Computed example of a mutant assay.
Amino acid sequence: MAVGAVLTGFATIAAVIALGALLAHIRLVDVQAQILLSRLAFFVASPALMVTTIGDADVGQVLSRNLVATTASVVVSAAIYLAGARWVWRRAVPESVIGALSSAYVNAGNLGIPIAAYVLGDAALVAPTLLLQLLVLQPLALAVLDRHTRAAPAGAGAALRQVASNPLTLGSVLGLVLALTGCRLPEVVAAPVTLVGDMAVPSMLLAYGIALRLGPGLGAGGPVAELATTTTLKLLVQPFVAWVVAHWLLGVDGTALLAVVVTAALPTAQNIFVHATRFGRGQELARDTILLTTMGSVPVILLITLLLG
Rank of each mutant, 00 (worst) to 15 (best):
M1R: 13
V3R: 11
G4C: 03
V6L: 15
T12V: 15
L22C: 11
L23R: 01
I26Q: 06
Q32F: 06
A33N: 14
I35Q: 15
L36M: 14
R39A: 13
A41I: 12
F42T: 09
V44H: 11
A45W: 13
V51A: 04
T53E: 07
T53Q: 08
T53P: 03
I54Q: 11
I54T: 11
G55Y: 00
D58F: 06
V59T: 14
V59I: 14
S64F: 07
V68L: 15
A72D: 09
I80E: 10
Y81L: 14
A83V: 14
V93S: 03
S96D: 11
I98Y: 00
Y105S: 04
G112T: 07
I115M: 12
I115S: 06
Y118C: 02
D122K: 03
L132Y: 06
L135K: 00
P139M: 03
H148F: 15
T149H: 08
A154S: 14
G157E: 00
A158T: 04
L160Y: 03
V163L: 15
A164G: 08
S165F: 05
S165G: 13
S165K: 09
P167N: 09
T169G: 10
L170Q: 12
L170E: 05
G182V: 11
C183Y: 10
R184N: 12
R184V: 12
L185R: 05
P192S: 02
V193H: 08
V193K: 08
V196R: 11
M199S: 14
A200C: 15
V201C: 11
M204L: 15
L205F: 04
L206H: 03
L206S: 02
G209L: 07
I210F: 10
I210K: 05
A211N: 12
L212T: 05
L214V: 03
G217C: 00
G217I: 01
G219F: 01
V224S: 12
V224M: 06
L227Y: 06
T229L: 15
T231Q: 13
T232H: 04
T232K: 03
K234A: 11
L235M: 10
L236F: 15
P239V: 01
A242Q: 01
V245G: 04
A246C: 07
A246E: 05
H247S: 15
W248T: 13
L250S: 03
L250M: 08
G251A: 05
G254L: 02
L258V: 00
A259C: 02
T263P: 04
P267R: 12
N271S: 09
R281F: 03
E284F: 02
L285F: 07
L285M: 13
G296D: 06
L302F: 05
I304E: 00
L306M: 06
L306G: 00
L307D: 00
